[in-house]
Design a binder for these strands. Sequence first.
DNA 1: GCTAGTGCACTGGTCTGACCAGTAGGCTGC
DNA 2: GCAGCCTACTGGTCAGACCAGTGCACTAGC
Lengths: 250, 250
Amino acid sequence: MGGPRFEPVRTVRAYERIVEQIEGAVEAGSLAPGQRLPSERELMVQFAVSRSTVREALRVLQARGLVRSRPGDPNGAEVLPFTPAALHKSLTTLARVDQLSLGELVGFRMTLDSAANLLAARLRTETQLKEMDAAIAAMRTAAEISYEAFSAADVGFHDAVARASGNKLLQICTDVVRSIVLNLISEKIASAPDRDALMSQSIRHHEEVLAAVRAGDGPLAARLSRRTMYEYYVGYVPAREREALRALLD
Amino acid sequence: MGGPRFEPVRTVRAYERIVEQIEGAVEAGSLAPGQRLPSERELMVQFAVSRSTVREALRVLQARGLVRSRPGDPNGAEVLPFTPAALHKSLTTLARVDQLSLGELVGFRMTLDSAANLLAARLRTETQLKEMDAAIAAMRTAAEISYEAFSAADVGFHDAVARASGNKLLQICTDVVRSIVLNLISEKIASAPDRDALMSQSIRHHEEVLAAVRAGDGPLAARLSRRTMYEYYVGYVPAREREALRALLD
DNA sequence: GCTAGTGCACTGGTCTGACCAGTAGGCTGC
DNA sequence: GCAGCCTACTGGTCAGACCAGTGCACTAGC
């Protein structure tokens, strides 16, 4: 029975093959950030396709954040150092299209931030502690100026903690999710009547978190950071979603 | 003083404007999943551009996972329900290009899975508990067959927990990160000499986690799930990264 | 000799028009 | 009534063209 076993062939579009090749070269490191691709006209010779096909491939690579092209540039497209821009884009789309609720986003942020604090308490260096000190000091002065300045300084603190966690993935994801959350509700907070009280309470909470990180007490830092974030955002989360956030608290 | 204040104009490429318009329509919901876009030739009339421009825009939208086109389809491109495929792609690229270590990935997974268990213990329904029961039963029978079957059943359990957490973002991210981790080391585990012991130990641990979820003890379920994952993967994580994982344990 | 300005050669962005291989659905012949 | 063909579409690809930018070599003026 049975002659040769044939497999279904998947028709692969020409531009996809080009994307694969260039993407592979970037991931393998043979095409390092800062290097230039050949020009589109050169690529169409190398790949033996038309310029439209080359361009469609470049569009895909650009959408993935791997390359950038600039009109008039005598060199070809530039290979970019990886940035989470594509990650950010797809998460933002997810949040909008799939209608992620604020509760889900805040809950996720509490989880990530808490883990970052847990790790940072164990792994932080003296330099990183100084950065966190500086960030809280910046929050204190910024609170006198505007909510926007305060928010920026607050970001600085959380980012310092995330860096100190030593986990790049954690750092990138906290960054992405944070900016989505801030985008969603920054204007609400900015116009909140109890804004000043919220800010000064937040500063006190951050100081407690930092003290726990400095003391090397990871579980405490993690618990305090969750509480800090909960109290800062809970007023903007619909009541029916608050139970899930409270479940994360301790 | 004086004179009108001019703003720098950013040149916007035609295809980007098209992407923005279509993307906006999808995010606003006026273009629902399953609906069809007009054909490329129709779009070039509506947008008053050439077909190349339309196609480049469609390539970007396709790379972002918003639409899909099929040659020969008498309808135009199909608007897709959002899938985390784009998220997956960018995270995979991040892992490869930015050289995320296995330790970072496992640590991240421990964090997410732990949070999912914490929430699931509080929010799970009876139906969801039954799904978890079934998943563990499947793990037990699959362990007799092959590692691949076991791994698939294991995924089923974690996915059931993530669903029960009620946090879609958590669910999607656990899914994405898990598949990256499995991609990295599944063949190592499959050929591990103590594979059978690892599987049966893993089953026992999963049963303990499920018991805690059933009892509604979130913190316990979270702690046990972290430990389960730690013990399952620690053998494959370089020694210098293990400290960070241990810091997550309790 | 050195600098400021001018071309030029090249880039990417866009357009036009064409061909091909698929697909779906209507039409025809049985 | 149904099987099979035909046609009018689709997306994928190609070829060639034009334009507005950019960087660099060259040149004219100091």
